[in-house]
Design a protein around this nucleic acid. Structure first.
Length: 595
RNA sequence: GGUUCCGUAGCUCAGCUGGAUAGAGCAACAGCCUUCUAAGCUGUGGGUCAAGCGUUCGAAUCGCUUCGGAAUCACCA
């Protein structure tokens, strides 16, 4: 369609030049799809031209329309409504276009727009994936596929937040309360098991805080001095010092988590080309911060912590290294970015990360820029909205999080159940049933998530999401299946549907004739001197059908003496019936109920 | 308070490089299984596009203001 718009645009400019001896820039030409109520395929806004032509909108339309019709062979006709020039494209053009698309469908785009790295998912290793990650994963994967189709080479990447205080909390809780529980001996999926201890940490931590407050401390003091948090912080320092025992535990628990994530990603159908771990990148980040300190971009506070002053950029001061020397989120991201650009000749870096981190990425871009990386300001933060529940936000600590694994399973089960109730699974093997349930269940989930504007916060209603009616994934799958089924049956009966497509396109031209005939209808009624009745319409339509008998082979089904208009619909196909119906409406003819 | 984002039917959302009477689905109501699979189709009702001002031939769309809501401004990641 883009092609045809370009050609029309060029010709409109040409027309202005020829007709009014004036230059008209191509980007002043506005073309859009014709509204459904009007005849035509594309509409040219004529108002910008009117300024030049100095003629009335109607006259200008007429002039431009005639020019286009004479100079472009795929324009069948045009009409004018107010200042809108509606162009009717010949059906043969669409056939040509469809054939072209069909042939080029599997061809890779020729142009090479460069290498795009897309980071998405980015889980923490202290808890399982939840609904928010599902949105992230589906968006990230979709962007990757879209950009591939657009001519980019795409590298999907995942940065695993495998270090930091959060994972120490899980480790500590497991050490203190775990009693040697493992995925193997408990049967719990690895990421869920580690998540369980993260929750236990929080519960025990809160107990300690309460005790300390009762003993006279303020809340702030209690939060800082509770033994558990102190121990966790000590553990983080030990980890950064490569303490063997701490690192061993860390490796063991992380391997549980990775195995669990792998399962979830596989179920969701997403994957990665390159996985980065913050445990491998934070040191580079630290080096960069030290370098920045050395060159005077950053500064050190009295307690030894390192900061960047971004107030000149309209941002705040930002901590980059703690007083104890351990790194923060920002430190890691600086390191990760540098390593990535060293590893690959990246032309575009895209971060798919939730909008709660808009500020973080603003700061990251400025910091990288200050550190002398030319690409710093080119980083793209693909920011998306939160997923909320009807009851409000998801809060892991309050147990209102929708777990990714649970949700996926629930969707698949629900698809299976619905299909079973509708009798769609009769005669299928268990394997086939499972495959279908998986396709439909995940189709529902993916479409439900992706159909919403990424920027917007969205409400996820678990009950409504498992709905197979209306604007849903299963509906699209169903339509696709039906089309396939039609094509399959056509093949079985040796029907050449290419030939039929040609024929049906011809019919469209006939439909116009049909409209003409229908528009004569009131006169016919007058001449006949009869009152307006369904029977009369039936007879009239019978005559119409005769006109079309070369295209409508099953026209003999028409029953002359049957007043029931249903037979008419049988003959003319739904679309044609619709055309007639619309025409009658436009003409103010009462449409019989059963038509 | 600063910054950013969002506000469209009862609900969930399209439409936003300015264009004709603002569209779907859900929910409600009325129909449609002798037609290629009814996970469907057809129809009815339902709107101050948060509000106001401006820009112009024309504003849901662009600008400003106000009112709502969200995120963020952490030695969490």
């Amino acid at each position: 369609m883009n092609n045809i718009e370009k050609i029309i645009t060029k010709n409109v400019c040409l027309a202005v030049k020829k007709l009014y001896s004036a230059e008209f820039e191509e980007n002043n030409v506005v073309i859009q799809q014709t509204k459904r109520e009007f005849e035509g395929d594309l509409t040219v806004m004529i108002f910008p031209v009117v300024k030049i032509s100095k003629h009335s909108p109607e006259q200008t339309c007429e002039e431009i329309g005639n020019f286009l019709k004479e100079n472009m062979d795929f324009i069948a006709d045009f009409n004018i409504v107010k200042g809108f020039l509606n162009i009717v494209i010949k059906k043969s053009y669409y056939l040509h276009l469809l054939n072209e698309i069909s042939e080029s469908k599997n061809q890779k785009p020729e142009q090479d727009k460069g290498l795009m790295m897309i980071e998405y998912s980015s889980p923490n290793t202290n808890k399982p994936l939840h609904l928010g990650h599902i949105r992230n994963n589906l968006l990230g994967y979709s962007i990757a596929e879209i950009q591939k189709a657009n001519g980019y080479k795409v590298l999907k990447t995942n940065i695993v937040n495998d270090r930091g205080i959060h994972i120490c909390k899980s480790m500590l809780a497991w050490q203190l309360f775990g009693k040697g529980e493992t995925p193997e001996n408990s049967g719990i999926k690895g990421d869920h098991l580690v998540g369980k201890y993260y929750v236990i940490f929080d519960i025990e931590y809160k107990k300690q805080i309460k005790k300390l407050i009762d003993s006279g401390l303020t809340e702030e003091e209690a939060k800082k001095s509770a033994p558990l948090i102190v121990q966790a912080q000590e553990m983080l320092v030990k980890w950064e010092q490569n303490d063997p025992e701490t690192c061993g535990l860390w490796q063991k628990m992380n391997s549980w988590v990775y195995a669990g994530f792998e399962q979830t990603y596989k179920k969701l159908g997403v994957d990665f080309d390159k996985i980065y771990y913050e445990s491998n990148t934070y040191l580079v980040g630290k080096q960069e911060v030290e370098r920045g300190l050395g060159s005077g971009i950053f500064y050190k506070k009295a307690d030894g912590s390192i900061w960047a002053d971004l107030t000149a950029d309209g941002l705040d001061e930002k901590l980059l290294l703690r007083a104890d020397g351990t790194s923060v989120y920002m430190t890691q991201d600086i390191g990760t970015a540098k390593i990535r650009y060293n590893d690959f000749p990246i032309d575009k870096m895209v971060y798919v990360v939730g909008n709660e981190q808009n500020y973080h990425f603003q700061v990251l871009a400025v910091l990288l820029d200050k550190l002398g990386f030319a690409w710093g300001k080119d980083l793209v933060h693909f920011s998306y909205g939160m997923v909320e529940l009807p009851e409000g936000k998801m809060k892991s600590r309050e147990g209102t999080v929708v777990d990714a694994d649970d949700l996926i399973d629930e969707m698949i089960d629900s698809a299976r159940q619905t299909a079973f109730e509708l009798g769609k699974l009769d005669g299928l093997t268990d394997k086939e049933i499972n495959e279908i349930a998986q396709m439909v269940g995940l189709g529902a989930l993916k479409y439900f998530i992706l159909k919403v504007d990424p920027r917007k916060n969205m409400t996820f209603n678990p009950k409504e999401s498992i709905d197979f009616n209306g604007n849903t994934g299963p509906f699209i799958q169903y339509t696709h299946t039906r089309i396939k089924s039609v094509l399959r049956k056509a093949k079985e009966q040796n029907i050449d549907f290419h030939q039929n497509v040609n024929t049906s396109l011809e019919i469209n031209d006939k439909e116009k004739y049909l409209i003409q005939l229908v528009s004569d209808f009131p006169n016919v009624v007058k001449e006949a001197g009869e009152s307006f009745s369904p029977a009369l319409i039936a007879n009239y339509c019978y005559d119409l059908a005769k006109e079309f008998n070369q295209f409508y082979h099953d026209y003999s089904i028409l029953n002359e003496n049957n007043n029931d208009l249903k037979v008419f619909r049988l003959v003319l196909s739904q679309n044609t019936a619709k055309t007639i119906k619309n025409a009658m409406k436009l003409l103010g003819i009462e449409v019989p109920e059963r038509m």
